[in-house]
């Protein structure tokens, strides 16, 4: 008797949650279970903090791009140009540093300018001319990829000293080190990009939760018609979402560049799809109005952890990564769909 009561209260608690929080909870729980599973079945590698930090190092840029995508998806839009922008930023920065005698600051400035330009133009077309965001950003992706080749068609590594120094900067994470095979204590570290990524996650979280503009994104994504009636400037809000996403594309591109240290037209191939997938796994709904930045962070972590598990399980043939990510995406989508539908049903009764 008692158990059934408890079960009921848990159910009603779930039904009382907002959609955003419910999906966030699912994401976090699945990530924790997955990481525990990795530790149990894949052994000690995953127990070392550095394994986790390496995931962060490799995917710092993806965290930033996913934040941008979560934002536009919450507002009811989409941006598939971020991968192309990342490649373009890397190439332009690389050319600037090695061929044009630039320094870190000019490179950073270029990255930001590219981000601002893409964000502003795409935002204008989507918000003020009312063109479907998918088409606009699809063209943006084509443009960025094509421009990358036009800027420089062959890949190369950057040798600029100042840059290499920044690239190799390791920030020690206290108390998280481990003892290696020779019995020497090795500190754990993260790269500069991770700090940037985490700062952006915090900024975005605060912005979405506690600012007026942040709540407007949710309102417009939930129902643009109503948002207009409620006195919200829908066009401006839409513009801002695409604009911020563009800037985050620029920053994410720079962080990516900082990690790989080279320029190439094939950089960040498919990054836009990984970012969309991360956002979805993190509980953002493409229909708009529902999503959470913390969830997005966990989405990226889940995605990259599963890639890690696949490669450490010896399934390093390329196709396994694609198939496992797809399977995971499928799983999450079905969970989301079933949970949301179930919740609706329980509400109706």
């Amino acid at each position: 008797m008692k158990t059934s009561n408890e079960k009921k209260s848990l159910l009603s608690k779930i039904a009382g949650m907002t959609d955003s929080n419910l999906l966030l909870t699912i994401t976090v729980v699945v990530f924790v279970l997955m990481y525990l599973g990795a530790i149990i079945f894949q052994g000690k590698g995953f127990l070392k903090p550095q394994t986790f930090f390496n995931i962060l190092n490799t995917n710092a840029y993806l965290i930033i791009l996913s934040c941008g995508l979560s934002l536009v998806m919450i507002t009811g839009g989409i941006d598939i140009s971020v991968g192309g922008v990342t490649a373009l930023v890397s190439m332009c920065c690389a050319v600037n540093l090695d061929y044009k005698n630039g320094n870190i600051f000019t490179a950073l400035l270029i990255a930001l300018l590219i981000g601002v330009a893409f964000g502003a133009v795409q935002g204008f077309l989507v918000a003020y001319l009312d063109i479907q965001p998918f088409i606009v950003t699809l063209a943006g992706m084509f443009f960025a990829r094509g421009m990358t080749t036009i800027v420089n068609s062959s890949p190369f590594n950057v040798a600029n000293e100042q840059f290499v120094k920044l690239k190799d900067t390791r920030i020690i994470v206290p108390f998280m080190g481990s003892v290696n095979k020779k019995g020497v204590y090795v500190d754990s570290y993260v790269e500069v990009g991770v700090i940037v990524a985490l700062a952006i996650v915090i900024l975005m979280f605060v912005m979405l939760k506690w600012t007026k503009l942040g709540r407007q994104f949710y309102a417009v994504g939930g129902n643009p018609q109503s948002a207009l009636m409620l006195g919200i400037n829908v066009k401006f809000t839409r513009f801002m979402s695409q604009f911020i996403c563009g800037i985050l594309g620029g920053i994410g591109g720079f962080v990516y560049f900082l990690h790989v240290g080279s320029g190439s037209p094939s950089h960040a191939a498919g990054a836009e799809m990984n970012a969309i997938a991360s956002s979805i796994i993190g509980g953002t709904m493409l229909t708009g109005g529902v999503g959470n930045i913390i969830g997005t962070l966990f989405g990226v972590l889940s995605l990259s952890t599963i890639q890690n598990i696949v490669s450490s399980a010896g399934l390093d043939q390329a196709w396994w990564t694609g198939i496992t990510i797809a399977a995971m995406l499928c799983l999450f989508l079905v969970i989301q769909s079933v949970v949301v539908a179930g919740k609706k049903k329980s509400l109706r009764k």
Partner: peptide, 27 residues
């Protein structure tokens, strides 16, 4: 099936096959 029965938005649902398709083709 994903779109009509599970009510997942088409772009998202087909993202699955988009990610896995070429791997399946190779396999």
């Amino acid at each position: 099936l994903l779109v009509s029965v599970f009510k997942i938005q088409p772009m998202v649902a087909t993202l699955i096959l988009f990610t896995a398709g070429r791997s399946i083709a190779a396999w």
